[in-house]
């Protein structure tokens, strides 16, 4: 599954790990991360992420 990087701060979303702190379960593909989810480090929206 493709990882996505926050272009504002560099945080990398890894679908295999998900992100527990922001309520995204391990194994959640990027497409299934809720649209109103924001970067847990800097707070920008999903639209600021790019595949890496």
């Amino acid at each position: 599954m493709t990882k996505y990087e926050c272009t504002a701060c560099g945080f990398i979303y890894d679908p295999e790990k998900g992100h527990e702190g922001s309520g995204v379960a391990a194994g959640t593909a990027w497409e299934d991360v809720p649209e109103d989810w924001v970067c847990p480090l800097c707070g920008v929206g999903k639209d600021m992420f790019e595949p890496v």
Partner: peptide, 9 residues
Amino acid sequence: IEARMLHWP
């Protein structure tokens, strides 16, 4: 208006 990352979170 929150301006996240302009230039800090």
